[in-house]
Simulated assay, not measured.
Amino acid sequence: MTDALSRLLAEKGVLLADGATGTNLFEMGLHSGEAPEMWLETHPERIESLHQSFVDAGADIILSCSFGANRHRLKLHQAEDRTHDLNRIAAEIARKVADGAGRPVIVAGSVGPTGEILEPIGALSYAEAVEAFREQIEGLKAGGADVAWIETMSAADEVRAAVEAAVACDMPYVFTGSFDSAGRTMMGIHPRDFWKSAEGIQPAPIAIGANCGVGASDMLATGLELETGNPDTAIVLKANCGIPRFVDGQTVYSGTAEQMADYTRLAIDAGARIIGGCCGTAPGHLAAMRHALDTHHKRQRPTIETIVETVGPLVNKQAFESGSDGQGSRGRRSRRGSAEA
């Protein structure tokens, strides 16, 4: 247990991860289509301010502003040659805030999908994917990230490529998927089979879980289905703050601080050890989650009925209703935007 994340998990039992990056940066003036990663150079003080607001709200883990900072996505902004430097800067900004917190705060180097489709359906080879992730993770490591946080994944081969890159960089790692398609990833992976994406790779992940894609109720339902393949591997749940609505030209998320606190308590009951918010989760929501985490005593594992009664109705059909074949690492996959909201 030599890495900082494992040590803090052992010390505290359950950790609070931060909230949304893109959603909050839009509130600070980021425009649609603009890459948050470009703000690392043009508005670093705003990135630092966001990290600080999450630390002030009680986050134990803050994710660097590097979700789309791989060469394939940066190419859209003519910045692919600055991949290493942008990731280094992203980690350095988060590291500065974490080091000034006066308590242990983990810097997680956010690593999102390449935005490309791997062979044989797409043009990106597995080796090229590994190299793209390695380049990014090396930059995050140079900037002081504690862990590679591989997130919002949907394809098993892309997860494995990112994990191989993290291991090659001698970085501890976490990986999460987005189970937003009838309770599965877009590539059809069931939550109980997601861990198999990196099966056999050593060292094993510190944590495996789910983020983005769905609101709190659906995320909790996914959490009941998640398996890690290793009793020592923690479960991560990082839900969107409710359901997005388009109001007066802006995207507004329906979740309240009270609902996110209820979600936090149920996530603990479901066995999650790293709990956070994704799209729409602001520092105010996170402060309520911090209070819930600090005051809650774990209860029995919730049922779907309890989840619906407490947090609200499910939006998606759940994976356990449609069976599981454990497959789905290859096939058609949509491109995600350049920022995790």
Rank of each mutant, 00 (worst) to 15 (best):
E151N: 07
E151R: 06
E151L: 02
M153L: 15
M153N: 10
S154K: 03
A156C: 04
A156K: 13
D157A: 13
D157V: 10
V159L: 01
V159P: 00
V159E: 00
R160A: 02
R160P: 00
A161I: 06
A161R: 01
A162K: 05
A162V: 04
V163C: 04
A165C: 07
A165K: 05
A165P: 03
A166W: 06
A168V: 02
C169I: 01
C169Y: 06
D170G: 08
D170F: 02
D170A: 12
M171E: 09
M171W: 05
V174P: 01
V174C: 08
F175S: 09
T176Y: 03
T176E: 14
G177W: 03
G177P: 01
S178A: 15
S178D: 07
S178Y: 01
F179S: 02
S181Q: 12
S181C: 06
S181L: 10
A182V: 06
A182C: 07
A182G: 02
A182F: 08
A182K: 12
G183L: 03
G183A: 03
G183E: 03
G183Y: 01
G183S: 07
R184N: 09
T185V: 03
M186N: 14
G188L: 02
G188C: 07
H190V: 00
H190T: 01
R192T: 12
R192Q: 15
R192G: 06
D193P: 11
D193S: 15
D193R: 13
F194Y: 14
W195Y: 15
A198Y: 09
E199V: 05
G200D: 11
I201W: 05
P203L: 04
P203V: 00
A204M: 04
P205G: 10
I206V: 15
I206S: 11
A207P: 08
G209E: 12
G209L: 10
A210Q: 13
A210S: 15
A210D: 06
A210H: 07
A210N: 04
N211Q: 12
N211S: 11
C212Q: 07
C212T: 05
V214C: 07
V214I: 15
G215C: 02
G215H: 08
A216P: 10
A216R: 09
A216H: 09
A216G: 00
L220H: 11
A221F: 02
A221I: 02
L224F: 07
E225K: 07
E227R: 15
E227Q: 15
E227I: 01
E227N: 04
E227A: 12
E227Y: 01
G229P: 07
G229F: 03
G229Y: 03
G229V: 06
N230S: 13
P231N: 09
P231G: 09
P231R: 04
D232Y: 01
D232K: 13
T233R: 05
I235H: 00
I235V: 15
K238F: 03
K238E: 08
A239S: 15
A239I: 04
A239Q: 10
A239T: 06
C241G: 06
G242P: 08
G242D: 13
G242T: 03
G242N: 13
I243G: 05
P244Y: 12
P244Q: 09
R245T: 14
R245A: 12
V247N: 13
D248M: 09
D248F: 01
D248V: 02
G249V: 03
V252T: 10
V252L: 13
V252N: 05
G255Y: 06
A257P: 10
E258G: 06
E258Q: 14
E258W: 02
Q259L: 14
Q259E: 15
